[in-house]
């Protein structure tokens, strides 16, 4: 596994807003089919790192590679746009606040990009939508509008929308943080299902239990650096760093309240 060429390769990622350094020289290699969780306190840079992978938050230094393609290439504006739009088709992303398109039905949300970008016919796109919705258990809501769905349902549709582009890797940016506690499980189940299908996933999360049960590797970030990384059993049960221990202790305490 270790000599396999990394699927997602972040090399010396740096990001600063003026004098404020959000990411300080972070490198991360993710193999095909691997599931990596990024945990850490808010402001640690974990979301920024995730959003750098599809260049939504461009890095100020360092490189991001997906297989043999550099994502954050320096190109003239037009060429860069063409390049990034192509690359992004391979990188699915799920947001904390779902970001479903409120003016389109569930079907419309899912078929919009595949029809426009992959030239699918209406019939093909519909079949694709049905297939993806079935996977997330939302097929019966295909003609609903987002406003008619619960948070958990919205997030499952958002996942289906990302999957419909047949991405090579999925990024989850606190996908369950905005959900009521009783709705978290249905989204976690969908993510577990993806894990079983060996989807490559990078997950920014506050759900330690979920990270422990699903992920192959956990990164603990604080103040723009990776403090500690390793298998979940080590990070959660037996962390080396004081900062990790502190964070986990605080997190457990606040979860029990």
């Amino acid at each position: 596994m270790s000599d396999e060429k990394p699927f997602v390769d972040i090399r010396h990622a740096q990001k600063s807003y003026g004098a404020l350094e959000v990411l300080k020289d972070i490198s991360l290699k993710v193999n095909r089919g691997e599931i990596v969780a990024i945990i850490g306190p808010s402001g640690s840079g974990k979301s920024t790192l995730l959003r750098a992978i599809n260049d939504l938050d461009p890095l100020t230094g360092g490189e991001v590679w997906l297989e043999d393609t550099q994502v954050n290439k320096t190109l003239p504006h037009r060429q860069y746009e063409k390049h990034i739009n192509q690359v992004r088709q391979d990188i699915g992303m799920v947001f904390q606040h779902f970001n479903l398109f409120p003016h389109l039905t569930v079907r419309g949300n899912i078929t919009l990009a595949p029809r426009m970008l992959k030239g699918l016919s209406e019939e093909e796109a519909n079949r694709l939508a049905e297939e993806q919705l079935d996977k997330v258990g939302m097929l019966e809501r295909i003609d609903y509008y987002p406003s008619q769905l619960s948070g958990g349902q919205k997030q499952r549709v958002a996942i289906a929308r990302a999957l419909a582009m047949k991405p090579k890797v999925m990024l989850f940016d606190e996908a369950t943080s905005a959900l009521d506690p009783e709705l978290v499980e249905e989204v976690n189940l969908v993510m577990k299902k993806l894990a079983e299908e060996h989807m490559t996933m990078i997950i920014v999360t506050h759900e330690m239990g979920f990270a422990e049960s699903v992920c192959d590797r956990v990164l603990f970030m604080d103040q723009g650096v990776v403090v500690e990384e390793g298998p979940p059993s080590v990070i959660f049960r037996n962390p080396e760093s004081e900062r990790t221990k502190n964070f986990l202790r605080k997190h457990l305490a606040s979860n029990k309240e």
Binding site: E81, N85, Q89, M93, F95, N99, F101, M165
Partner: peptide, 13 residues
């Protein structure tokens, strides 16, 4: 977030 969601799917500006 609407723009981010669309751009993330690969849609142009």
């Amino acid at each position: 977030g609407q723009v981010e969601a669309a751009r993330t799917l690969g849609m142009s500006r």
